[in-house]
Design a protein around this nucleic acid. Structure first.
Length: 722
RNA sequence: GCCGCUGUAGCUCAGUGGUAGAGCGCACCCUUGGUAAGGGUGAGGUCGUGGGUUCAAUCCCCACUAGCGGCUCCA
């Protein structure tokens, strides 16, 4: 169709495939009205040719259009009319709420300069530069929310207007906010024009503003949009928290205050959201770790250094046993190496001094230290001497690989011995920034379920697959399905990577191929590689949505080079092996932390620190209860006795609080029959009596088979069916 | 490291310019009770650390320290 012909009739295709014709330009709102007045009232925006837009957007040519309303039909339930929040609607809402919050903040703190305020998955934020003598405090939230309430109540229209580049930039410069000038420049650059290279496109590029009300009268902000029609559509806004951020994420640039908020169409939705956050907190591994006595971090021991208490140690040990069994099947051999090593080792590997900032400072020999002190050596000189090798010292190991390399290199290898697979639960230490530490998920000392595979170039692909299958076995056994796979490649613009680009290409291709055969979707991410090679990472989310890298598999052509490793090939000549680094759990600390949240502390029987608690009804059956416990223990079941001076009801409550899989209630009736009355975690009633021998065998088998909680074959499942 | 918030009994948390309180837990006593908290009594705190203001500081101010939420970083 020619543009000329299009000028009269406009055809709008709706989501159901029907077509509406209009005699001339219309707005999205008018289209909605033509469909139905209820729809028009509910509408908060439109999607025009897949692009989210204002309801007031003019439609001047044929297009497809859908009206965005707060709720939409839930996926996969064609027949029933269940509704769920529409993500596009929430996007519009939160983007709009960010504007309203910013206006409110500027009322509360005059002189606050706005920088950038995008919507997020669960809310929005606005980066703001506050006057140095008037930082924003949490105590200001109430006043801000009150102002937000007023603006919402006034129900002012979001009014868009556009200016050409010249005029727009003039306006922004006159207003004197370098942040908004910068935003505009970026917007212009992104849309093809640029201030410095004036071009044809630049003349057509427009900058847009949104006034909350009348331009010139009411508050306004440079913004691409789109927004909901008016502030009255914003149901409930809450200012959530404050954080510091950097302009453009650059730590040498201006420090800004990031104000987080969230918004929903109704107060009820907001309350539900806050409720969900509250529930998430209850399964936070730091909360559960304390409550279930799984681990302890002590100020006197040091930041980020985890003390594994007896309960947590059981979980860890079971996981280690599990993986050790898998390693045996896959032909690994286990090794042990020390926690420190000479600087020379890490100079060769490249970890020192390039990563000196993220390591604990070196340990220096007594004599060297005394000599340097008597010379009056400064810190800077000392640091210099350590890097150059003028003096030697030891480093708490940041990685296990150099040690495994020296084990490999301690004897000659033939291609016939390859691959050599060395595994170790190796503890490493890294100086993470204090603000980064987080429970067990980000720590300064942690144990990797590490292994290094030394193989021939031909073996790389097969070994990579072996590693990936190991990760899959682990995730499947633990029922962890909610993870994503990331192939970390090098960032072409960065200089932090070491080694030959040709080898990098080979390694990246090998990872890509291996990831493809994994059978799960993956994403390639440049810049996420290790400094020595590309990697395949398994990333999971914690209860509050933060992502953590767990399992990792990395290809490395670099370290074999640095350590001049070789094996003798079929041609009787030395060849360079390739290394694969892999840690399917990542680290025991992080993995257990994530696992605690995954299970909300309710571990499957094989992992549970306490598997069975025996609860005598009264003192009269204490003796029988003790025999039950002894029998369970003899069978290798982790069982305890609660012979406290309480009623069973209280004992049940306490056992449930500790999320113990099974309770064995025993009274005179059970004692007489040699039975136990079984109660399973999460089941609100007694499952009935069971012969003691059968119960012991059942729990033992359930644990030995590493069954998931309640799956066929467990005691719970058997008793509920029978 | 940066910004904000927080630090009071083993745990969760109230509270106050005149050296502290609850619930749970713990100890002891009564109770011997068949499936999600029986009753009583009691012990337990240099109010994160160090300075300052004050007649007087757990409370106000400053610094430090640790935790939390983010930012940056993450071999």
């Amino acid at each position: 169709m020619s543009p000329a012909a299009a000028s009269s009739t406009i055809r709008v295709t709706l989501p159901d495939g029907s077509v509406k014709e209009f005699g001339g330009p219309v707005t999205a709102y008018q289209v909605a009205e033509s469909i139905g007045s209820r729809l028009a009232r509910a509408a908060v925006g439109a999607k025009i040719d897949g692009q989210l837009a204002d309801l007031s957007s003019p439609i001047e040519r044929d297009c497809s259009l859908s009206i965005v309303t707060p709720e939409r039909k839930a996926h996969g339930s064609e027949s029933r009319a269940t509704m769920e929040p529409d993500p596009d609607a929430l996007y519009l809402l939160r983007h709009s709420a960010a504007h309203v919050m910013a206006e409110a903040i500027q009322r509360v703190v005059p002189g606050a300069q706005l920088v950038y305020g995008p919507p997020l998955e669960t809310g929005f934020y606005y980066d703001i530069r506050f006057p140095d003598d008037r930082p924003l405090k949490e105590g200001d939230f109430e006043a801000i929310e009150a102002e937000v309430g007023k603006i919402v109540k006034e129900d002012r229209r979001f009014t868009r207007y556009e200016l050409g580049v010249e005029e727009g930039m003039k306006k922004l410069r006159a207003e004197g906010s370098k942040y908004k000038v910068d935003n505009a420049e970026r917007a212009i650059a992104a849309s093809g024009g640029s201030e410095t290279h004036g071009s044809e496109s630049r003349a057509t590029v427009k900058l847009s503003w949104y006034a909350t009300g009348e331009p010139g009268t009411h508050w306004e902000d440079l913004c691409r949009g789109p927004h909901v029609p008016s502030t009255g559509r914003i149901g409930a806004v809450k200012v959530m928290s404050l954080a510091s951020s950097y302009w453009h994420g650059d730590e040498t640039s201006d420090r800004l205050t990031r104000v987080y908020g969230t918004a929903f169409f109704s107060k009820k939705d907001l309350d539900e959201h806050l409720d969900r956050l509250e529930q998430a907190k209850a399964r936070d591994h730091r909360v559960l770790g304390k409550h279930l006595r799984l681990f302890h971090i002590d100020e006197m021991v040091g930041q980020g250094l985890v003390l594994w208490t007896p309960n947590g140690s059981v979980v860890r040990k079971e996981l280690q046993n599990f993986i050790s069994e898998e390693l045996k099947k896959q032909g690994y051999t286990e090794v042990f190496t020390p926690n420190i090593g000479r600087l020379e080792l890490f100079r060769t590997s490249g970890h020192f001094p390039y990563y000196a900032d993220s390591q604990y400072p070196p340990v220096i020999e007594r004599e060297s230290l005394a000599a340097l002190a008597s010379e009056g050596c400064s810190c800077a000189q000392l640091s210099n001497k350590l890097s150059t090798g003028d003096i030697d010292g030891y480093l708490l190991k940041p990685m296990n690989c150099p040690f495994h390399i020296k084990i490999f290199d301690s004897q000659p290898h033939s291609y016939r011995d390859m691959p050599v697979r060395l595994a170790e639960f190796g503890t490493v230490y890294r100086w993470e920034q204090s603000g980064e530490l987080n429970g067990m998920t980000r720590v300064r000392g942690f144990t990797q379920d590490d292994a290094h595979l030394f193989c021939t170039p031909e073996q790389v692909q097969a070994e990579l697959l072996g590693c990936l299958s190991l990760v899959k076995i682990i995730f499947a056994t633990l029922g962890m399905e909610d993870y994503r796979v990331r192939v970390g490649l090098r960032d072409p613009d960065s200089s932090k990577y070491v080694g030959d680009p040709a080898n990098w290409d080979k390694a990246e291709e090998a990872c890509r191929q291996a990831a493809k055969t994994l059978g799960v979707p993956f994403k390639e991410e440049p810049g996420e590689a290790a400094f020595y090679g590309p990697k395949i990472d398994f990333v999971v989310k914690d209860v509050i949505g933060r992502e953590w890298q767990l399992g990792t598999v990395q290809v490395d052509y670099n370290l074999p080079e640095r350590f001049d490793l070789s094996y003798i090939g079929p041609d009787n000549k030395p060849h360079r092996p390739v290394m694969i680094h892999r840690a399917p759990f990542g680290s025991m600390e992080r993995f257990c932390g994530v696992l605690i949240e995954h299970f909300a502390g309710a571990f499957p029987t094989w992992l549970a620190p306490e598997q069975v608690r025996v609860l005598p009804i009264s003192e009269k059956t204490n003796e029988y209860a003790a025999r039950v416990v002894a029998e369970l223990k003899a069978a290798g079941v982790r069982a305890t006795l609660d012979d406290g001076n309480e009623r069973v009801q209280a004992k049940i409550k306490h056992a449930a609080d500790m999320k113990i899989p099974y309770m064995a209630v025993v009274g005179p009736r059970d004692a007489e029959n040699g039975a136990v009355s079984v109660r399973a975690r999460g089941v609100q009633h007694d499952l009935g009596a069971m012969a003691l021998g059968g119960f012991v065998a059942g729990v033992r088998q359930e644990a030995a088979a590493r069954l998931a909680w309640g799956e066929p074959g467990t005691v719970t499942a058997a008793m509920q069916v029978g």
